[in-house]
Design a protein around this nucleic acid. Structure first.
Lengths: 342, 342
DNA sequence: TTGTAAGCGTTATCAG
DNA sequence: CTGATAACGCTTACAA
């Protein structure tokens, strides 16, 4: 195992001082061309690379971004992450990722783990449990310590920081209106059991559209499903008790499962019933019929979040005036596919 | 922005030396109970946490693992990553992730970015391009420098290092035999256009089973598809020119698409044609019919890879004898679902 | 043009 | 029991 080469080695070998080597490698004009050449040649030969850790300690900048998300085996978060990673790498930043697994405790532990110098800032989306408890002291602490933080998608109003969100309510409103325009009279909403601010906002948009069309919001038309372990019988029961001719679903899994049960019951899609789901994942693309979806543009969200964070990190480093926090809104779009009439 | 508190601050405040503080916080018995109490109370009050970067510099250990994978928006890699992250976090390690995007250059850049002190070791799966070029000098360099490296899934025989792989050939053989036992006579293989060692091994298992049943391997029965942008017509053409009654697919997307086209052609599944695909992702679970798959147990692979890496990192730190490199084989299993006769 | 020295925050050795 | 000092690898005033 060859030891990694350091400035000290080069200095010793070339019989110059460490600072001379350091400057020579930075092409400083304090150093003679001769020496520079000699040092640079030697460094290249031995493939010298400055030790990141030492540089970080000196600069008090790590060029690492901490990402804390509830789940990685989930298409939306995956795409956001992709966007973060893409932009960050372009800017020479690495991404350290921690998964909270929808658990408050894991979220806290992970953030503490990272917030001791390992990272320059956080990008995160709140875990289900955190949203439920509505306890964000760990976030406040991070912000208080001066660590930049960007929240995306699952955000909270209780914290002042940069945020990136989707126009959830508006697009849910648009999606519902699309169904209304198809002539649907009994539009259901399939939503999550646990509390997510985004589900809430989507429900708001749904209600808004119905109201606008002078329709009452019928609670029988709201199908609440658990995050995991969905039993088909739940959906069966729903179809039994509520006559529906369209479903807006807050995610694609619920939509796909509702479609599946509908097909088994002999309902024709989109003639008898039409579907729109949130999230443009694999399922909606390859299902039969393909699912009309609300595309959340995760990659874009990720890029924006990363840009916001890095901008802030770098402006703080330069000691420039902190402008106030911003909330960027990504515009979702509806992708028409076979589960609706177009 | 409150400054992060350091040993120095505590020392100054309490009018003791830095080393006393350091020892007191470590509960060293060199320090009087009085002092320890005082220091610890103060530290807790001000929420002192040692600076990771400084500790890393001192120890020459970062407690960071670098993961380099071809793609994150891909169920298999996502699950492996989940396993890595899980085990690593349990052991107090963070995971830094870089995506090579199937590109050789990005793989090289990412690894250089990380291999300058940021991480204690690598876990990676080769990009498509790297496998194609078969150029692994960047890996050799890493290993030469003494950085532990664990390869998983897409590995290479050209490099001596720890590896975690699936019993690809064997399970493809089993899967094919399952189809043969159903009485299938014209079993096709749907595989990738670009070269992956795993696709190759799966093809070997497929051929082996056919041979065992005294059947010739008919090249007309091999459907080669591109990684992206699959046109339905390719599959249409395939069905036109080759009469098939079963398809083994090296991934789930190909299988789902073949199913979709088969259904459109009025073929009954699994009566007329049956399907098995690699990867137990969402698609196979929610497709119609559900897809019988080879489960690759990604989470387990990830955990094993992380364990191998961390074991090696820690044994090197202790200077213990390096045993030779190991290759762990994860046993895949076949999950029977509706696309085969069970 | 080159080198010395201090410092980033810790830990560990050794003296007091 | 406590503290000074050196070291990890690098950068950067400031001397020479």
């Amino acid at each position: 195992m060859k030891q990694k080469i350091t400035l000290k080695h080069i200095a010793r070998e070339l019989e110059v001082s460490i600072s001379t080597v350091s400057k020579a490698l930075k092409n400083s004009d304090e150093i003679s061309d001769d020496t520079k050449e000699k040092v640079q040649a030697f460094a290249k030969l031995y493939n010298y690379k400055p030790n990141n850790i030492a540089v970080s300690l000196k600069n008090k900048r790590t060029k690492n971004i901490g990402v804390v998300i509830p789940d990685i085996v989930h298409h939306f978060f995956t795409t956001v992450f992709r966007g973060i990673e893409k932009y960050a790498n372009e800017q020479g930043y690495n991404v350290i990722i921690c998964v909270s697994d929808e658990s408050f405790d894991k979220e806290v532990i992970n953030m503490e783990m990272l917030n001791n110098g390992s990272i320059d800032g956080f990008i995160m989306s709140l875990s289900a449990e955190t949203q439920q408890k509505n306890d964000i002291t760990h976030l406040k602490q991070v912000v208080d310590q001066g660590t930049p933080l960007v929240l995306f998608d699952r955000v909270t109003d209780e914290l002042e920081c940069d945020k990136v969100i989707l126009n959830d309510q508006e697009i849910a409103y648009e999606a519902t209106k699309k169904l209304l325009k198809e002539g649907r009279k009994r539009i259901a909403l399939a939503t999550t059991e646990s509390y997510f601010n985004v589900s809430e906002k989507r429900a708001d948009g749904y209600r808004q559209a119905l109201n606008e069309y002078g329709m009452e919001v019928d609670n029988d038309l709201v199908l609440v499903l658990p995050y995991n372990d969905i039993q088909e019988s739940m959906i069966e029961d729903f179809y039994d008790r509520a006559k529906v001719d369209a479903i807006l679903s807050v995610n694609e899994i619920f939509a796909i499962q509702c479609i599946s049960v509908a097909k088994k019951r002999g309902m024709k899609i989109p003639e008898d019933i039409s579907f729109i789901g949130f999230t443009d994942g694999l399922l909606s693309r390859y299902s039969n019929p393909t699912l009309t979806v609300v595309a959340q543009h995760g990659v874009k969200m990720g890029e924006i979040a990363a840009k916001m964070l890095i901008d802030r990190v770098e402006s703080e480093a330069e000691g420039s005036i902190e402008d106030t926090y911003r909330t960027e809104i990504v515009q979702a779009t509806i992708l028409d596919r076979e589960s609706t009439i177009n």
